[in-house]
Design a protein around this nucleic acid. Structure first.
Lengths: 204, 204
DNA sequence: GTTACTCAGTTGCTTTTTTAACTCGGTAAC
DNA sequence: GTTACCGAGTTAAAAAAGCAACTGAGTAAC
């Protein structure tokens, strides 16, 4: 079932985690621009080139959490059960995320997660990079939906919907409400948004 | 004062410690012959060749503690203050060891240390290797004392005295007495032995 | 007695990491 | 305006580690 993890792979995973953990904790403590990559490397006890072998840029030290979900929308559509419309599959996937209080849905009130989102949204270079990831996701989704303009349009709308839903959820939580309290609205919003999308795109 | 420890050196030290700690704990738990070097490597999360890069043999996994003191007698004599006879310097050094309850003096009742000594003394291959270390120590000491036979003889006696003293102390502790309780005798024995040595070798 | 196994220790090759020195853009000093 | 510095990211060389497969000795099976 699980592939045999050799010594090498295990240590690589730990190194990656050590770097990511050091980065997050320093960024949350002092802010993105007040921390140098050398600080992070020092805290993680790795050299600077090693840090950059694990993460392509300073931004990725945070955004790898999103990068790891890269192409997920396309995958969800590609791997959907037979007889299920693409929009339905995407809808279900988002609702699963809400059920799990997945941070990417914005519906998560752990202080770390909230602080993390604030950091991302209030740091221009991070927000910019995050947008880039979303656009890549959009491209992949478009390719899998429909090679023409229709695919591009639908993909753009899906990505936009997810972004707005997540942002809305996060905002409510940032205003002091709990994830549990917000959940019904989040589900309703999602159902509404995806229903509209399904209707607009002519899916059953 | 303290040399700047780079990342490399720091990690090497940790790896070495991890291997040594894994070895000691497994050996104490199951006995020297009931533990394979692969077990130790696995527990230390290191590959077998790496283990052997740090320690020349399975025995050295334990005896490195003695190996690290290798040449100490010669060093004590070489670096002694001016006007001090070699035997006096060695005597003082041993007494300092007693004062610190240095494990190499045998005057230490920490369970780990006692168990460690028992392991060494009751495992033939370990006792053999330990003897080798003592002979090396003897050679170095002889060379620094006197290049001729006189040096060899004196060195042999010094090493023998230390061995007997340590063994005597350990035996008393193995019989259930505390290091604190044994200490006066240990000091008296050491004083007696070294006084005899000084007299015999004509040192002041 | 030969077959098979285990374990200490080794070997060659590949991957990963460190080190130091570098480029390049920005920015403060003066 | 040029000089000096800082921080992101790169490069090349060397050290260190992992991996797999080996040797060679001992030993149990049969």
């Amino acid at each position: 079932m699980s592939e045999p993890v050799g010594l090498r792979a295990r240590k690589k995973g730990r190194t990656r985690d050590a770097i990511a953990d050091a980065a997050i904790s320093l960024f949350l403590a002092r802010g993105f621009d007040q921390v140098s990559v050398s600080d992070i490397a020092a805290m993680a006890e790795v050299s600077k080139p090693t840090l950059f072998r694990y993460f392509a840029s300073k931004e990725d030290l945070i955004l790898h959490r999103f990068a790891d979900h890269s192409g997920e929308a396309a995958r969800v559509v590609r791997d959907r059960p037979p007889g299920i419309a693409p929009m339905t599959a995407l809808h279900r996937h988002f609702r699963d995320g809400l059920d799990r209080f997945d941070p990417v849905t914005g519906l998560n009130d752990h202080p770390q997660v909230v602080a993390f989102h604030r950091l991302v949204f209030t740091t221009p270079s991070l927000a910019g990079r995050l947008l880039q990831y979303m656009l890549d996701d959009e491209d992949a989704l478009a390719a899998v939906l429909d090679p023409g303009v229709r695919g591009r349009l639908q993909a753009a709308q899906v990505i936009a919907v997810r972004r707005v839903l997540a942002r809305t959820n996060w905002q409510k939580i940032a205003d002091g409400r709990t994830a549990h309290d917000v959940r019904p609205e989040a589900v309703a919003d999602a159902d509404h948004a995806f229903a509209q999308l399904s209707h607009a795109t002519g899916d059953s």
